[in-house]
Design a protein around this nucleic acid. Structure first.
Length: 414
RNA sequence: GCGCGUGUAGCUCAGUCGGUAGUAGCGCCAGAUUGUGGUUCUGGAUGUCGUGGGUUCAAAUCCCACCACGCGCCCCA
């Protein structure tokens, strides 16, 4: 048997209804913020991600699907979408259009990681980028927008975590201070931390080994090393969130894996998702456009929701089958009734109802099918009904049945 | 990439000490019922025991490798 390749999967009904619901709600929220869709290619020049995401990140160094095209150029399936959006922004000179550019996207991304629950090699992200302003007001707007998506999708108790990782002026000094301190204390830490102390010092802050927590707590905090503009920016972001009544956890140890983040970073976690409890991540990336060739300063901030994980969280408490509604199942008896039923079906479908037409002339079979399909009503068309000009509408939940004329049908189905 | 675990019917699973694969539950099909589903009763179908190799008179069972999935690590959405 040919099977879907490792790390990929089919989204089947009824689960696909949850995906459609999530995407529909997200689009509603985005449009209400005057944020509009951008669709970029799912493969790009490898160089775009190498420069945008960062050569030293795990994503670029070992998790990309990359191959040489026939002309020798290196192509990569996108592992994330922010770099592509910024590339499109620069390529199409969107900086020449007045105002803040607010763009959202929904689509598949690809990373060659070990598959696990909530982690696939093809996964979907719903994200947005607000480009062209470094105002902290925008940070608060973006955070509010993404939380609104979660709320509108019915996600219970999302947990917002925020931090500031500084900028190119103040972060290097902090990293150096952190490394210096780690040289003194790393001997007492776990093996992973000893390795990270040299390779990726910021990651030590993320260590989850219980025995290391005392040491981790004693390490310097990025928040004490922010330059004055970064500190002021972060203070404003926090106060704007508070003014909006948005609860957050300040976690100075929240560091993100992508090189381009500056200043505000954030994450939302949700219980019951296993090790992959992060449902979305985002942050500001004020230097990214310049590193991709923009000649004008182009600050931006964005986020990306892991759609697979969001769907998983929703399915914890929503039965996917409940999202699909079948209003009426037509049960014609005989050829004449079948031909007539097709016209009734057309009427009702045009009226906005979901209608199923039985292909089986045996009433018992058709009624069984209606029941298994979880139809709200069955509409029986037989000789008696056709000659009298009425139809027998049966409520499948109560078993109650009554005779209705064609005009009375649609109102009865409401 | 690393560690641990799991893999038997469409699904959930049982399978003793290695001795012909289960009256198992749910689901599916048919009938009881020629114009009425759900409940009930009766009957029926469905297996490369994940794949390949090894040990053995004999392997779902023991051993090895591989594959897939799960949990965790790394990292991340």
């Amino acid at each position: 048997m040919i099977k879907a390749i490792r790390g990929t999967r089919d989204i089947l009904p009824p689960s696909s209804a949850v995906w459609n619901m999530v995407e529909a709600r997200a689009r509603e929220v985005f449009h209400s913020f005057n944020c509009h869709e951008i669709r970029t290619p799912i493969f790009e020049s490898t160089e775009l991600f190498a420069r945008g995401v960062g050569e030293e990140t795990d994503i670029v160094s070992k998790e990309m699907y990359t191959w040489d095209d026939r002309d020798g150029s290196s192509i990569t399936l996108r592992p994330e979408n922010t770099a592509s959006v910024i590339r499109a922004y620069i390529e199409h000179r969107l900086d020449q259009i007045p105002g803040l550019k607010k763009l959202y996207y929904i689509g598949p991304m690809f990373r060659r990681e070990r598959p696990q629950k909530g982690r696939y090699r093809q996964f979907a992200q719903i994200g947005a980028e607000f480009i062209g302003s470094d105002s902290p007001v925008i940070d608060a707007e973006v955070i509010e927008m993404v939380l609104e998506v979660l709320t509108r999708c019915g996600v219970e108790s999302p947990h917002l975590i925020i931090n500031s990782v500084g900028c190119k002026d103040c972060r290097p000094a902090f990293v150096q201070a952190l490394k210096d301190r780690l040289q003194d204390v790393k001997a007492g830490m776990c093996a992973d931390c000893q390795r990270r102390a040299d390779s990726n010092a910021l990651r030590v802050l993320d260590c989850k080994v219980p025995e290391d927590q005392n040491v981790v707590d004693s390490l310097p905090s990025i928040l004490d090393h922010l330059c004055q503009p970064c500190a002021a920016h972060f203070e404003t972001v926090k106060s704007l969130l508070e003014a909006r009544g948005i609860d957050y956890e300040l976690r100075s140890r929240l560091v993100r894996g992508l090189d381009y983040y500056t200043r505000t970073t954030f994450e939302v976690t949700h219980g019951a998702l296993g090790a992959q409890n992060s449902i979305l991540g985002g942050g500001r990336y004020d230097g990214l456009a310049e590193s991709l060739g923009s000649r004008v300063p182009t600050p931006g901030i964005g986020f990306s929701i892991g759609e697979d994980r969001l769907v998983m969280a929703i399915e914890e408490h929503v039965d996917p089958a409940s999202l699909a509604r079948l209003d009426v199942f037509l049960v014609p008896m005989g050829d004449a009734a079948l031909r007539h039923a097709a016209l009734i079906a057309r009427d009702l479908r045009r009226g906005g109802f979901t209608v199923e037409l039985s292909a089986d002339h045996k009433v018992k079979r058709a009624m069984e099918a209606a029941s298994k399909a979880r139809a709200r009503f069955a509409l029986i068309l037989g000789d008696n009904e056709l000659t009298a000009g009425v139809y027998a509408l049966k409520d499948m939940a109560t078993g109650e049945q009554r005779s209705l004329t064609r005009e009375q049908l649609a109102p009865a189905l409401k």
